[in-house]
């Protein structure tokens, strides 16, 4: 079995709500890491990861200028801020959930991890 690392080794992010939808920004620490994200972190992969929370669809946007992918997860908030019965009504924690996703160790990992100072 391949050794795994968490997505957070090569990226950081933030999530928030838009009505009943949530967005998750995944931001690479380096250009090499961004290239890996673009090639590997597809909308389909994110959709299958979040399948237990039943998003109706997932859309991916690119912001190469800030080395980021932005995912829209539609209808994932079980009603959103006003109607959701969940503790995380606004999807505030979804970014950390995605960043905890196990990934295969990418080739050239040392060029993808956080370089200080930021």
């Amino acid at each position: 079995m391949n050794e795994k690392i968490m997505l957070s080794t090569i990226a950081h992010g933030r999530s928030g709500d838009k009505g009943n939808h949530a967005n998750i920004a995944v931001i690479a620490y380096t250009p090499t890491g961004y290239a890996w994200l673009r090639a590997n972190l597809s909308a389909d992969l994110v959709a299958s990861y979040f399948a237990p929370m039943q998003p109706s669809r997932v859309e991916r946007f690119e912001a190469a200028n800030v080395l980021a992918l932005n995912f829209m997860l539609y209808d994932i908030l079980a009603g959103g801020a006003s109607r959701s019965l969940r503790i995380d009504t606004q999807g505030k924690t979804l970014a950390l959930t995605l960043l905890a996703m196990p990934i295969d160790i990418p080739n050239g990992l040392e060029r993808m991890t956080r370089q200080l100072p930021v």
Binding site: R14, F61, L67
Partner: peptide, 17 residues
């Protein structure tokens, strides 16, 4: 810094373009 700024730039954003 770069990280705090980008995290907020994309906060509650759909299509960033």
């Amino acid at each position: 810094n770069r990280e705090t700024l980008i995290e907020q730039l994309l906060y509650e954003v759909g299509d960033p373009a």
